[in-house]
């Protein structure tokens, strides 16, 4: 009996060691340890043994059962690991094949710049408003201190629809429309398309975009104008760029200023983009003329504010190094896909 046990153990050990897939291993498990397996049969045949030997043999059988079970488990684990390894090896792919991308398009570069500008000003508490592109002469000119036949109307040649309806030549009329409807404090920006009689070339377009800004309150100062526009320039062109405010003229602001940024192409050394000046003109601004405030019914003794305006195309062209404004409206996919 003990001899048979030893034989069985050696044989089982050998077989289990030699099995080289999990299926075979499973068969061996059934063969030895199953309900009808050899070890079970052996246990059953113990009845033929003398009663005094039974406990010892029974112990041996159970020991063997435990050993075989452990061994089977260990082998199974090893074989599974090997098989997994093999499978993974077979499943290897050429990871240099291109990925399949979800389709995605691009926003127009002007939209991207407009969104950036809006985000910056919204962050500073400005509200985004719109106004009509087809405007009344009154809003585009008269309310902004530009009476009919005023020489400064020549500064911006305008498309007319009728004697008093025109395509707005600036986003400034939105200032007037907002102030007519709303009491101070007013803190708005007005992005949109504007139109001027300019023949198309590399730097001119009869349609372009502006963003107008207006802040009117009781204590708004020229210093605030400098602060707000300085923060804007830093946000859009990056920190550490020199800027300068210099006196200028707009009919509806007094004092007026133009804001130059150190040329971002040549860092102020002078190049073609800045006509060798080292500076790029980015914004026009100023304190709202008291006559404008009066016309919309604000008390200029009580309220004061600033207004500013910028050309979106110019900023986009500087930011992205676009040298021809026509590219922005030709909509060539080879251009648009770059953004």
């Amino acid at each position: 009996m003990r001899e048979r046990l030893r034989q069985m153990r050696d044989e089982a050990w050998k077989r289990i060691s030699e099995a080289d897939d999990t299926g075979e291993l499973d068969k061996l498990r059934v063969r030895y340890l199953g309900k009808k397996g050899e070890l079970t049969a052996l246990l059953r045949s113990m009845g033929s043994l003398p009663p005094e030997e039974r406990p010892d043999v029974g112990k041996l059988v159970n020991e063997l059962r435990g050993q075989l079970d452990d061994f089977l488990k260990e082998r199974l684990h090893n074989l599974e690991a090997r098989e997994l390894e093999k499978r993974l090896e077979q499943e290897a792919i050429d990871i240099t094949l291109p990925g399949r991308r979800p389709a995605f398009g691009r926003k127009h570069p002007l939209t991207q710049v407009l969104e950036e500008i809006e985000t910056i000003f919204v962050g500073m508490g400005f509200e985004v408003v719109e106004g009509p592109e087809v405007e009344l002469d009154y809003y585009n000119f008269e309310a902004l201190n530009l009476p009919p036949d005023h020489p400064t109307r020549d500064m911006q040649d305008t498309f007319f629809i009728s004697d008093d309806i025109l395509l707005r030549s600036q986003t400034s009329p939105v200032q007037i429309r907002v102030m007519e409807k709303q009491e101070p404090p007013v803190r708005i920006i007005a992005p949109g398309k504007v139109y001027r009689v300019d023949v198309v070339d590399a730097t001119h377009s009869p349609m372009f975009h502006q963003v107008e800004g207006l802040l009117v309150d009781e204590h708004t100062t020229f210093g605030d104008l400098k602060g707000v526009l300085g923060a804007f320039i830093e946000a859009i062109f990056g920190e550490g760029r020199r800027t300068r405010f210099r006196p200028s003229f707009f009919p509806f602001t007094e004092p007026s200023a133009e804001i130059d940024v150190e040329c971002i192409m040549c860092n102020g050394k002078g190049c073609r983009s800045c006509s060798n000046a080292g500076w790029l003109e980015i914004l026009g601004a100023g304190m709202v003329d008291p006559r404008v405030l009066q016309r919309v019914g604000y008390d200029p003794q009580k309220y004061q504010g600033f207004a500013f305006g910028m050309g979106v195309e110019r900023i986009a062209m500087l930011k992205y190094g676009i040298d021809d404004i026509r590219l922005l409206f030709e909509n060539d996919m080879r251009f648009l896909k770059q953004f």
Partner: peptide, 13 residues
């Protein structure tokens, strides 16, 4: 250069 006084709520249209 200073920043405007007062709190304002900005927002998109």
């Amino acid at each position: 250069a200073t920043l405007p006084k007062g709190v304002a709520q900005g927002g998109e249209n």
